[in-house]
Computed example of a mutant assay.
Amino acid sequence: MIGQLITILERIIRNCLPKSKWGERIGGAILAAACVGISVAAPILILAAAYRIQWWLGILAEGFMCYQILAVKSLKTESDKVFRALKEEGLEAGRKAVSMIVGRDTDSLDEAGVTKAAVETVAENTSDGVIAPLFYMMIGGAVPGFAYKAINTMDSMIGYKNEKYQYFGTAAARLDDAANYIPARLSAWMMIGAACIWGLDWRNAIRIYQRDRHNHKSPNAAQTESVMAGALDIKLAGNAWYFGKLYEKPSIGDAIRAVEPEDIRRSHKLLYGTAVLAAGAFLTVKIAILALLMTV
């Protein structure tokens, strides 16, 4: 629904404002404000009505909303389709499967390239789709969770530096950078903890994190990618094609060993381990805050 809202708002705003650099930047800012505002107002109204009827109905409604915001299982399921496609149907099927979860061009990727794309997606979305929503739900429940979800969805849809969204997507991209700044860094350290629990190379994860966490134009994307690369002893990122254009990007990690499809399954261990650690940590913080407030 948020994605459909963004599409509708974009069409309306583009028809109303001039096709100039500043016209598109202003239009993108209006879209960002409207999308976040509507995405927050809707759950506020629904929850207010539910809690007014019965407190338990409000709890059920908010619990369902929070469930919808998290993407742990869907992230694992969609990336696992890439693994199964490579192992059971071959490279072409793997390319098609990974094209469903990444923005880059996949037609020329080899098996290692397809695997890397899937692993990078799991790494980045462990923060964007799991830890960041948990962080904002810890702060205030479903409402800030949906505010974050609107911001992140806008970035995934219009936060590109291509001809169409170079200026129109600026506000969405900057807002996403700000919203993910703290969660991305928390995600990185929790992923290091998960690597230790699973017996992966957590020492190398720390080393690569400290060295390569800024090897991305986004201030946040390389935080978890660097940990993932270090924990798995592989090299990620590097040059990639988007919309028919080659973008030169620094690599992340060291090629201590060759990338293999099984790395997708290994990334799932880090995904779930990080999610469990974050849920436990945020719940502990929430309980401590509530206990403190009750004593004041």
Rank of each mutant, 00 (worst) to 15 (best):
G169W: 03
S108W: 04
F168P: 01
K81A: 15
S99N: 12
E124I: 05
L186G: 13
A112P: 01
P144R: 10
E124N: 08
T115E: 05
A117F: 07
E89Y: 06
A147H: 09
G193F: 10
A195Q: 00
K164I: 06
Y181H: 14
D107G: 00
F168Q: 00
A123S: 13
S108F: 03
F83Q: 04
Y181E: 13
G90V: 09
V82Q: 07
A142V: 05
K96S: 14
M154C: 04
E78S: 14
A132P: 10
E92L: 05
L134T: 11
M190H: 12
S79E: 02
R95K: 15
E88M: 04
K87V: 10
A93N: 04
G90M: 09
A71P: 02
L134I: 15
T153C: 03
M137E: 06
P183R: 07
K81I: 09
M154A: 00
A123K: 04
K164A: 08
G90P: 07
E120L: 03
K161S: 13
R104Q: 11
P183V: 08
S99I: 04
L75R: 00
T115M: 02
L86F: 09
I139E: 06
E120D: 04
E78M: 08
M138R: 07
Y165N: 12
A85L: 02
T126L: 14
W198A: 15
V130Q: 02
K164T: 13
L200M: 15
V82K: 07
A97K: 05
I101G: 01
T153I: 00
L86N: 11
K96P: 00
T115C: 06
L134A: 13
I151Y: 07
A178N: 05
Y67E: 07
L200H: 08
K87M: 14
N152P: 00
E120V: 07
A150F: 05
E111G: 00
E78A: 11
K76E: 11
I131L: 15
S108N: 14
K116T: 09
L109G: 03
A188I: 11
D177N: 13
I131K: 08
I151N: 07
T77W: 00
T106I: 10
S127L: 10
A179H: 06
E88Q: 09
L186Q: 04
R104D: 09
S79D: 00
A93V: 03
L186C: 14
R185E: 02
E89C: 01
G169E: 06
N180R: 13
K81E: 15
K96Y: 13
N125K: 04
M154I: 03
G169V: 03
A172V: 06
M137H: 03
S79I: 02
L86V: 10
P183N: 11
G159N: 12
M138A: 15
M100E: 15
P144D: 11
T106F: 05
L200G: 00
S127Y: 11
I69C: 03
T170P: 00
L109Q: 06
K96D: 15
V130L: 08
A195W: 01
D201T: 09
V114N: 10
G113L: 02
I192M: 05
K149E: 04
V102E: 11
A71R: 03
M137T: 01
K76Q: 09
R84A: 03
D107Y: 14
G141V: 02
V72W: 01
Y165K: 06
